[in-house]
Design a protein around this nucleic acid. Structure first.
Lengths: 224, 224
DNA sequence: ACCTGAACACCGTTCAAGT
DNA sequence: ACCTGAACACCGTTCAAGT
């Protein structure tokens, strides 16, 4: 019996929701979210697209499942030491997960009900803040400002039209050259003296902003 | 002469990139980004989809143009008083624009080169920070933390599975009811005592986090 | 210079039919 | 219970042809 002719087809392994989601994530990571179609995903699994509908109810369900899977990858220490380092560890883990799966932020504005892992993640965060002695109101503030910052940073990082420092220098040069001198003088200055400086790496901004926010929360906690 | 038969078709007004972009934004605002197809957009303009390609080079170009249009809508005071109130005004305006156009955050992770209005917006922000006496390094920090926060907050707001306080109460009830009691105790507590409290409105969190970040930047400026 | 009709290579999803 | 083939109603985009 000949092996299936389709290029990526894998041998007949039982399909499952878990396998569908994992493969969808691999495909989106490797080829971008636009390349994630039901047909290509079926191909990758050695199956017709229509078979996927036995394991996800439709493409929205697939995408929500993928988001929840990202949260399930983030493991959080069972007993956070103090609330501040718990928040730091968690923020860094979440940002890493969102960088590993750059399509995730783009799928998150769907208004779908959060999945089980996502809720578990949120519960852990809220629990760590409450255990650290923050009031409910301050916990809500902390949750909002931290998540907004983390998601927004990940989004901006994905939006950058470059990835390596070399590319960033090239890009900055291009942007500066493209416009009449001094049309954007302050932007040009920032590029010239900061972005184009040797060793510049936007990713390092993450922890700067994170500590600023954690300082602010700590101060708010004192004055409660 | 009879009016064109297509439902939404408008009388023959000259097409232009500007009119294409404006109509695309109206369509996306009203019907969601998924409803924005070249064919429906053509319909809305009383024209075949293929005509659009005389004014935008493809759908990516259309979407980038829409993003830049959102930035062009945000007008910023020519002479910011002090840097802190300049940042506050600008943050609030940007958040309002992103709430008015909920599809915008989802299109921003494309890695496309920013448009003219977007660069002008950035230039204004950097200029206001520099005029306020912040160093280049601190300006870069401020720019990163503020934009991340604003974009992330807008994204979270769009992601909320409810819009009115009534819907939020209903949603919270559903989420709590859906899971075994005490599976997510901290989340449940926050819902019960905060989200379900009368007068709760997530949008009000925006300025809380904003002031926390502005405080942090002000403190960093003192110690420079 | 701008618009169109026909066509191409795709999509997500359904449904009856197979095993 | 799970998988498939054929079909439907869509997509973005091209290209030669019209005005």
């Amino acid at each position: 019996m000949a092996v299936a002719s389709s290029g990526r087809a894998e041998p007949r392994v039982r399909l499952s929701r878990d396998r569908v989601l994992r493969t969808a994530i691999e495909l989106a990571d490797a080829a971008g979210i636009d390349a994630l179609t039901m047909r290509k995903l079926g191909d990758e699994l050695g199956v017709e697209a229509m078979s996927l509908y036995n394991h996800v109810s439709n493409k929205d369900d697939l995408q929500n499942g993928m988001i929840d899977f990202v949260f399930s990858e983030i493991d959080l220490p069972p007993q956070p030491a103090d609330w501040r380092s718990a928040m730091r560890v968690r923020a860094i883990s979440l940002r890493e997960a969102l960088a590993r799966h750059p399509w995730a932020t783009g799928l998150m504005d769907s208004g779908a009900a959060p999945g089980h892992s996502t809720l578990g993640h949120h519960d852990w965060v809220i629990g760590a803040l409450r255990a650290g002695g923050l009031s409910i109101a301050l916990t809500a503030h902390a949750f909002s400002v931290l998540d907004s910052y983390i998601y927004g940073f990940a989004m901006q990082e994905n939006a950058l039209p470059f990835e390596t420092p070399d590319q960033s220098a090239e890009m900055a040069q291009m942007m500066l050259a493209q416009f009449p001198a001094n049309e954007f003088p302050h932007l040009a200055e920032l590029m010239r003296e900061h972005v184009l400086a040797p060793g510049y790496n936007y990713g390092e901004e993450f922890e700067v902003g994170l500590e600023l926010i954690l300082d602010g929360l700590e101060r708010a906690r004192w004055s409660e």
